[in-house]
Design a protein around this nucleic acid. Structure first.
Lengths: 332, 332
DNA sequence: TTGAAAGCGCTAACAC
DNA sequence: GTGTTAGCGCTTTCAA
């Protein structure tokens, strides 16, 4: 491991000067001659210097660790987000501590731990609705100098040191509607998911803007596949309805419908168009393949870490909104 | 944050004594009176002390960070493993650095980074076949005092400081065969997956032990769903074949077959029995639900971290073999 | 513009 | 058995 001491020796300067050149946030008024600066940078590069965050933060009175709060679910999103965060953390030599959870109490414990350990910052992706108790925790943490990046929680407020990275659900829903319109849909059904109202909203607004009327056939809460199948089959009898377009705000429901409908002698992808949301693993491998919306969680993770590390070092960071993308397969 | 200094002050001893009591691996011959020990432990507990691994490892000449090498794939296993590792790391205050990759070169870079950063140990779950170049890296790392826990790589050798945690593929395959036998299968087909020969082996040995002959209808490499479907349909014509049992050594192929077969007027789960491997997300939501093998990757992750932290502190750790479990759904 | 020195929390060698 | 002290790699104050 290359240390400042070795670079100092090789460059012919003191450790202090080297620190001032290489530190990610040198103290106020740390002046080094431009020529010296370049020289030292060259030596550091040649020797393959990587900063020892452990020592850096020990000195600064804390830990370099970034706490990450992720939903404790079997879906693919958290995994992609985690991957993105890990990727960028590796590039920046930040160690990570993950907290898998899905409760408000857990979030509170997470914040408490973060404070206890004097971790350097937090990335949070709560799967539950943003509520007052969360807001309280966020305010408490950020109010006392904590830095936080919040993922996919539009409306979590705008405390100082709080930045958000959101993936636009409204546009995702609209993309699905657009596709169903292009495919000549006559009727537009949607399974509304309480957890993601914006997807549903985006879908409905787009359908309406084309002069059609979206029909809500279920909410994810009272989702009953059999009932939906029989409803679709009766619509299917009247050719003037076809094609019927149906949007499930998560792949799980979409896959249930697609696979139950498969044995009903219905042309999925022609007479009945089905689209989901999330591009879960296996969604590409059901038959017919599921048309769905991919969310750029990998990018969101990377972006979150980049923003957070900027904030840790006292720089400005701006909130960001990322666009999802429609993946077209055979089902719609 | 509570430090040794504060505990020392509260307990009325010097920092050194407190360190000897609370350190996870105090130096040789660190003697403390039992009474003192208890007293200090009590104070630490009361104050809610959590060790500062950053400072601990800075002193020891390294970093507390544990490097984790995981396959860069969209499947659910790595995510579960990661979760297990994170859970236990949190409990033990070990920060983590993940390396997502799927190449031998990447593995080499990973080991190199681990050495550069003086990380405290490594958990590796390479998705590729164990080969000489890997063995070389492992030996080099472990030979120089590096500690490693290897996941699901039976036959990775047994260097000092190398411990393995494996999930028994052979038994998993056998469990599937057993189920198909119980369901009265007459013919037993298997799609052999190069990457997991033991699953296939376990399946075949079990079938043979019941006096039947397993038939290999494809390998994952030349997997062609259409061909398999037509093969199954022609078998289906002759009632004396039924039920036909088919084992895909990964859920992906199983789901393809199940969903393509759905529209063929075949009774899946009665005349044709299908089982997969892995219990990927959505496998429960296709119709009929996929009977498959769950692998305890969460436990594997936790276990790996516990073993590694023992090794880091100079204790012994033993290799372990975990058993998978069959999840019975409607498809078989 | 540069250098010397103190100190973050912890461990370990040595002294008592 | 317990205390004193040095030092891990880094940042920062102060002096030159």
């Amino acid at each position: 491991m290359i240390t400042l001491r070795e670079i100092a020796a090789a460059a012919g300067y003191s450790i202090a000067v080297v620190s001032r050149v290489l530190s990610p946030c040198p103290h106020e008024g740390a002046r080094v001659a431009e020529k010296t600066r370049e020289h030292i940078r060259g030596v550091a590069l040649r020797l393959g210097y990587r900063p020892n965050r452990t020592a850096e933060f020990l000195k600064r009175g804390g830990s370099p660790v970034i706490g990450v709060y992720v939903p404790d679910s079997a879906e693919a999103h958290p995994a992609e987000l985690v991957k993105g965060i890990c990727l960028e953390a590796g590039l920046n030599s930040f160690p990570l501590a993950f907290f898998y959870d899905a409760t408000i109490d857990g979030f509170q414990r997470f914040i408490q731990e973060t404070i206890n350990f004097r971790n350097s910052g937090v990335i949070a992706f709560p799967s539950f609705q943003f509520d007052e108790r969360i807001a309280e925790q966020v305010e408490m943490y950020c109010g006392h100098g904590g830095r936080m990046v919040m993922i996919n929680n539009p409306g979590c407020g705008s405390a100082a040191n709080l930045v958000s990275v959101d993936i636009d659900d409204f546009s995702g829903g609209a993309m699905v509607a657009e596709r169903l319109l292009i495919r000549g849909g006559r009727r537009f059904l949607t399974i509304c998911n309480q957890a993601f109202p914006a997807r549903h909203e985006g879908f409905c607004r787009k359908v309406e803007s084309a002069g059609k009327t979206p029909e809500i056939i279920a909410s994810a809460k009272d989702f009953n596949a059999e009932r939906i199948i029989s409803m679709l089959l009766s619509m299917h009898q009247n050719k003037s309805n076809l094609p019927v377009g149906i949007f499930a705000a998560s792949d799980r429901e979409a896959v249930e419908i697609i696979t139950m409908l498969a044995k009903c002698n219905v042309k999925i992808g022609r007479d009945i168009l089905i689209a989901g949301y999330g591009n879960q693993y296996l969604a590409a491998h059901v038959h017919p393949g599921l048309t769905t919306v991919v969310q750029p969680f990998l990018s969101a993770g990377r972006s979150a870490l980049i923003k957070l590390s900027a904030m840790i070092y006292g720089k400005e960071a701006e909130s960001e909104k990322l666009m999802p993308e429609l993946i077209i397969r055979e089902s719609a």
